[in-house]
Amino acid sequence: MSDITRSDVAHLARLARLAVTDDELDVFSGQLDAILDTVGRVSDIPDDVPPTSHVVPLTNVLRPDEPAPSLPREAALAGAPDAEEGRFRVPRILGESQ
């Protein structure tokens, strides 16, 4: 049985950069708990089964080191919430306490 608490949800939300509300902590802890109970069934599977990460039987797919056109800078910045001097403008990177 899993046992997802409000503080577990808060921790996951912090890792995933989700500023969840207090109400969400309640709702999600119940829902995540139920989901993890269902998916936890995979723990029955024996250790000696090898994992599968890719289903295509491909190896060594490589690209030749040949330049291709880049985007025009205006196109690269077109979707930016904010830009300045040809660069993406973002809020200060460190918080007040750092």
């Binding site: 040809g86 973002v90 809020p91 750092q98």
Partner: peptide, 12 residues
């Protein structure tokens, strides 16, 4: 430096 900056500009 990053400390004390009010915003940052990114070049990728």
């Amino acid at each position: 430096r990053i400390h004390g900056a009010s915003y940052s500009l990114l070049d990728y």
